[in-house]
Write a protein that binds this DNA or RNA. Sequence first.
RNA 1: GGCCCCGUGGUGUAGUGGUCUAACAUGCCACCCUGUCAAGGUGGAGAUCGGCGGUUCGAAUCCGCUCGGGGUCGCCA
Length: 598
Amino acid sequence: MLKDTYCGDLRASDAGRTVRLAGWVHRRRDHGGLIFIDLRDSHGIVQLVFTPDRPEVHAVADRARVEWVLAVEGEVRLRAPNTVNPRLPTGEVEVVPIRCEVLNESLTPPFYINEPADVDERVRLTYRYLDLRRPEVARVIRLRHEVVRFIREFLYARGFTEIETPTLIKSTPEGARDFLVPFRHRPGYFFALPQSPQILKELLMVAGFERYFQLARCYRDEDFRANRVAEHTQLDLEMSFVDESDVMGLIEELYTEIARRFGNGRILQSPFPRLDYFDCMERYGIDRPDLRYGLEQVDITEPLRGTTFNVFASVIAAGGVVKAIRVPGKADFTRRELDSLTEIAKGGGAKGLATIAWLPGGEVRSPIAKFLTPAEIDGIRMRTEACEGDIVLIVADEREVAARSLHLVRDELGDRLGLKDPSVLAFAWVTGFPLLEWRPEEGRWDAMHNPFSGFRPEDEPLLDTDPGRVVSRQYDLVMNGQELGGGSIRINKRAQQEKVFSLMGYSKEEMEARFGALLRALEYGAPPMGGIGAGIDRLIMALVGTDNIRDVIAFPKTSNGTDPMLGAPSPVDPEQLRELGLMLTPEAERNVREAAEL
RNA sequence: GGCCCCGUGGUGUAGUGGUCUAACAUGCCACCCUGUCAAGGUGGAGAUCGGCGGUUCGAAUCCGCUCGGGGUCGCCA
């Protein structure tokens, strides 16, 4: 080893020791004779002091520049009391080198490593290895390591077996688009990268492992978002002989402990509240509500039944609903503020946003008041429990549109009114989802979550008579408006699984071609089983309080799915294509040619 | 695929029709400087304003197209 001590570890108690350090020049302060160099390594920063009385050592410090790599041997000494730096953990000491060697020089970095600066993300990603040198960036990656390590130890201690599953599997056309990998030995055949190890983990239960987990890389070839990338990591686990409460209880214990150890916030409610899907949609208009604040949706259809106000009357007559959010103390929203909220509501499909404000003193201010009777207005006030000084925001539409629009309004109000307290972790479970949803354009049912989710036993007859009313044994873990994970108790009988597939429009032949392995396995004593897949990236995001998923990934891709550092993806050699039995379309050819010319 | 925002020395920004021969901060280079820790001081180099085309007597600035980045809707069982 070129070093025997980490820079960041030195403390007053090390005074007098002779240490060998190695690291990067973080900063250099040249006073002419006296030169200070802050030397940084993976543990932190310590100050080196160079004086002219060792000319050959001083000369090295004189040449050295930011990000050069130095090896140093020297004595740790206490700083004079007036030169202690309380902002550094090592600030009570400094190292006086008796030897200093340049291990490598460095170009001037393209951006600051020694201070937090808001640098263009593309530049950061192109030089990600430099970006990761910045302590605040590296901190997140290290935290991720600690969390993952804790998860592993937590599950090992509870008898889980960690098992890897293949990343080259079979493509299935459901759900997200697959990433495909051509198979050279049989041109025309493709592997797919897994969207999750779902089927494989069920097969591990059939195999008798009883408790499995894996930190699984999952791939989806869809468009990206601030919290969504092509490849993400999932805590994937599955247990045999369990019901919902076993899985939820285990995950709740795990996440509570993670939040306690690694989070910088407090858990709002423990045990995590469990919301029924329909109730949740009714109150929040979304199946992943942010429970850090109220502003719940209230159905005010009833007091308006029989109204002569045509906007509401026609919606009610068509079977729609009128829903409202009461915003306490915001009767003074300006016209401009209300206009922008209206635009947000329209983004959810609403035709507009009606408002009624009760001013201090009792006066009602509302563009629609003249179309409503005093009794109707009073009915709205009672339903929403509005008081003087409050405003009520109203959407009338089909149930889904009204719910979605008011969800968007509520979300915006949460931001605008500063209700999203970053120090609060509002976990919740959402359960009671419908098993299936109707796809009118395709004339078939589709699984709301995944086609392997089980359903309440008492609902089995409904599969024949009224499939839309079958309630699944799915559970979603949500926190602060984000979905952190989801799982279910699975179907473990072939006949039930086939029934669900047939409702989804599959023939026996298609079932066999796509899911033959699973169906067959279910006939060989598949145990009752259930599990969960929980997004690790989003968990870390929540713990560090970022809304950018790239912050928690060491080498992330840009939002268009490319890697500017490696230059991936890239065209490949024509010979490689030939081997794989692939040909480019003319458009693809042109694409490659044009890129080559740039 | 649609929509919104952004693109000016290495980095971050200012400049929204002529006063821009492009400003500021920081970084970089040189010199001075022995207690700093975002060290300080003096001087210097560095951008034809993402690209192409158009409008105009005149474009960083206006228009069109395009490339790149960020966000979002669709999509994401």
